[in-house]
Structures are given as C-alpha cells and as structure tokens.
Simulated scan of single mutants.
Amino acid sequence: MIGKRKSHTFLQSIGFTALASALFIFGNADAASAHGYIESPKSRALLCSERVNTDCGGVIYEPQSLEAPKGFPGTSIPDGQIASAGGVFPQLDAQSSNRWSKVSMNSGRQTFRWHLTAMHATAKWHYYITKPNWNPNQPLTRNQFELVPFYEVFDGGARPGQKVSHELTVPQRSGYHIILGVWDVADTANAFYQVIDAQFTGGSNPNPDPGPGPGTPDPPSEFPAWSATAIYVGGDRVSHNGQVYRAKWWTYGETPGRAEVWELVR
C-alpha cells in the first residue's frame, strides 16, 4: 500500500510539473510573439531571413525579435549595437560599406510598412537616418545619425493591425545610408528596432506629392491647430503659425513658440 501511495504521489508530481510547464508556455505565448519587422523597404533583418544577407546568426529565424529597452535616442541601447538592438543578434552590428545588401530608394515621399507577429499596444513609431557625411565603415553609433526623427507618430496606446503603414518623407540623400525604424510599445518598457540599408540614387521619389497648384489654399496640416482653450498632454502635437509643435508635458493656454512646454518639431 505504501509503495502504491508513493507511486501515485510521484505520478501526480510529474503531472503537475508538466501542467505547470504547459501553462507557463501558454501564458507567455503572447509576450513571445509580440514582435515585428519592417517588410517594405526590406530591413537588414528581413533580408537575413530571406538569405539575401549571409552570416547573420539566429536572426534568420526571427527577424521580428530585435527587442530592447525603449528610449532611443537616449541611453536605451549601446552605441555600436544599434542594428542588433543591444546585442540580441550581434552579427547584425558588423558594419562596412559592402557588408550588407541594399534596397534601392529615392528621397521624398515613401511608404514604409511593418509586419507585426502580434499587435502590441503602441506608444509611438519613430524613424532616423544617417547624416550626409556619415562613415559606413565605422560602427553604427548615435553620432552617425541625425537624432531628430524625420518621422514620428504617437498612437496613444492603441493596438495596431498586423500591417502598419507610414506615409513619410525621406530626407534628401545620395549613396549608401541607413534608416532606423523604432516601434515603442505602450505597456512594456521595450521597443523593437529595425535598420534598413538603403542605396539612394540622389534623386527624389518619381511620383512626389505635387502639392497645391497656383492660387490654391494651403492644405490643412496633419496635426490640429493649437487652441488656447484646449488641454494638451505630453506627446500631443499641434500646428501653429505654419509650424508643428509637440507638448513636453501637460499644458493649457500656453502658446507654441513662446512657452517652454512646446518643442518645435518642424
């Protein structure tokens, strides 16, 4: 009887351990799949996954997993490890003018598209580009980038769909440059990092927005006009006197361009 009781207890223990392991895996499935990569223009990680880039390491299996603390261009990830999101896949940090395959690109109006393997609540998306005089044969550091994002949009915690597109204007460049796209998650401390190796022709988008014709009024801004009677919180953007401003913190009745709370975006 004692032997049977011990055997029964042992089997119960095995069953409980297996159940606990299964619940742990299941409970963390959403977190593990909450990733994304830039699929157009194709990122360095995606080109590794497609075997266009070689000697990439484990990123070939999960180009969506370049996750690290958010806060860029602050001290979120070390210099020299920007492409690998702080060393997640260190092979991605190798940098030279001919190390990586490049995607053809023109300056001007472009559509960038992310593919998400899970739809995380989102704080913001932001994009950076290397300086005109950057050195492609040196490690990728903050000093190689223009640290004011050329495109930034706040989602306020909304959950995106599987495909997320951004209509943005790429600054004028020629030759080889790197674009860094960052997806900041709202309900965790992390973000997802993707770099694009772009070869610019020196021209502009062959189908640019023609803009207003002669005598037509200026188009409305993509951001609402500032109102002296509205309450704004940190991250809110407004247009005022032909410029765009971002609130650094809560504000009411303070005029953009005069009050410190407002940061000039463009």
Rank of each mutant, 00 (worst) to 15 (best):
R5E: 13
H8E: 11
T9C: 07
Q12D: 07
S13M: 08
L19Y: 08
A20Y: 11
S21C: 15
A22G: 14
A22C: 11
L23S: 12
F24Q: 10
I25A: 11
I25H: 01
I25S: 06
G27F: 07
N28C: 09
D30E: 14
H35F: 08
H35S: 04
G36H: 11
S40A: 13
P41V: 09
K42Y: 04
E50K: 09
R51Y: 14
V52T: 13
N53W: 06
C56T: 08
I60N: 09
E62I: 04
A68V: 14
P69E: 13
K70N: 12
P73G: 15
P73V: 06
P73R: 04
G74Q: 15
S76T: 12
G80S: 15
Q81W: 01
P90G: 05
Q91Y: 11
L92C: 05
A94N: 14
S96K: 04
S96F: 05
N98S: 15
W100N: 06
S104L: 03
N106I: 01
T111R: 06
T111G: 08
F112S: 09
F112Y: 15
W114S: 02
A118E: 13
T130E: 15
K131L: 04
W134R: 07
P139R: 13
T141G: 12
R142E: 03
F145S: 02
F145N: 04
V148Y: 06
Y151T: 06
Y151H: 12
V153F: 15
V153T: 13
D155M: 10
D155P: 00
G157F: 11
A158D: 15
Q162M: 09
Q162T: 14
V170P: 11
R173E: 14
G175T: 07
Y176R: 02
L180P: 13
V182K: 01
V182H: 05
V185L: 00
N190A: 00
Q194A: 13
I196H: 00
I196G: 10
A198F: 12
A198D: 10
A198L: 07
F200R: 11
N205Y: 06
N205A: 02
P208N: 07
D209F: 09
P214G: 01
G215T: 11
D218L: 13
P220Q: 01
A225E: 10
W226I: 00
T229Q: 05
A230D: 13
G234S: 11
D236R: 07
S239M: 04
H240C: 04
G242A: 05
V244C: 04
Y245G: 00
Y252M: 08
E254R: 00
E254W: 00
T255N: 02
G257E: 03
A259L: 01
A259H: 08
L264Q: 05
R266Y: 12
R266C: 01
R266I: 03
